[in-house]
Simulated assay, not measured.
Amino acid sequence: MVSTGRSPWARGRILASLAVLTAALLAFHSAVPNTVGRFGSLLETFLPWLGLAVPLLLALALLRRSAIALVALLLPAAVWGSLFGGRVVAGDHGAHDVMAVQHNVSDVNADPSGTARALIGSGPDLIALEELTPSALPVYERELAPEYPHRAVRGTVGLWSKYPLTDVRAVDIRPEGVGHDWNRGVRASARTPWGDIAVYVAHLPSVRVRWNGFSSGRRDESAGLLGAALAAEKLDRVILLGDLNSTVDDRGLAPVTTRLDSTGRNSAFSWPAAFPVSRIDHIMTRAATVTHVRTLPATGSDHLPVAAGITLDP
Score class of each variant (00 low, 15 high):
residue 237 R to H: 10
residue 65 R to K: 14
residue 186 V to Q: 12
residue 77 A to E: 04
residue 107 D to M: 13
residue 57 L to M: 03
residue 303 H to M: 08
residue 116 A to R: 07
residue 127 I to L: 08
residue 207 V to M: 03
residue 145 A to S: 15
residue 42 L to A: 06
residue 206 S to L: 14
residue 127 I to M: 12
residue 48 P to H: 01
residue 243 D to S: 00
residue 94 G to D: 11
residue 291 T to N: 15
residue 76 P to A: 07
residue 183 N to F: 15
residue 310 I to S: 07
residue 260 L to M: 06
residue 105 V to P: 11
residue 223 A to P: 08
residue 208 R to I: 07
residue 227 G to N: 02
residue 205 P to C: 08
residue 108 V to H: 15
residue 291 T to W: 00
residue 60 L to F: 01
residue 254 A to V: 05
residue 201 V to A: 06
residue 217 G to A: 13
residue 235 L to R: 13
residue 57 L to P: 00
residue 81 G to A: 13
residue 42 L to R: 00
residue 68 I to Y: 05
residue 168 V to M: 13
residue 116 A to L: 05
residue 76 P to M: 06
residue 34 N to S: 01
residue 16 A to T: 09
residue 246 S to G: 06
residue 309 G to L: 06
residue 132 L to D: 05
residue 172 D to W: 02
residue 304 L to M: 00
residue 162 K to D: 02
residue 276 P to G: 03
residue 223 A to L: 03
residue 92 D to K: 04
residue 219 R to E: 12
residue 155 G to H: 03
residue 182 W to M: 10
residue 238 V to S: 12
residue 188 A to I: 03
residue 235 L to K: 07
residue 163 Y to L: 07
residue 261 D to M: 04
residue 76 P to G: 10
residue 231 A to Y: 09
residue 142 R to Q: 15
residue 123 G to D: 09
residue 109 N to M: 14
residue 81 G to K: 02
residue 233 E to G: 03
residue 292 H to R: 04
residue 25 L to P: 07
residue 191 R to H: 09
residue 149 P to S: 11
residue 269 F to D: 07
residue 141 E to P: 01
residue 239 I to K: 13
residue 293 V to M: 08
residue 47 L to N: 01
residue 131 E to M: 10
residue 295 T to E: 10
residue 77 A to K: 10
residue 287 A to L: 14
residue 217 G to E: 14
residue 89 V to W: 09
residue 10 A to H: 14
residue 37 G to L: 08
residue 10 A to V: 05
residue 170 A to M: 12
residue 133 T to F: 14
residue 135 S to C: 15
residue 70 L to Y: 08
residue 67 A to F: 06
residue 104 N to F: 09
residue 291 T to M: 07
residue 104 N to E: 15
residue 152 A to N: 01
residue 69 A to N: 03
residue 82 S to D: 13
residue 105 V to R: 04
residue 201 V to F: 00
residue 281 D to M: 00
residue 238 V to P: 08
residue 77 A to L: 11
residue 71 V to C: 08
residue 234 K to Y: 06
residue 176 E to T: 15
residue 2 V to M: 06
residue 312 L to M: 14
residue 187 R to C: 00
residue 187 R to N: 04
residue 153 V to H: 10
residue 305 P to H: 10
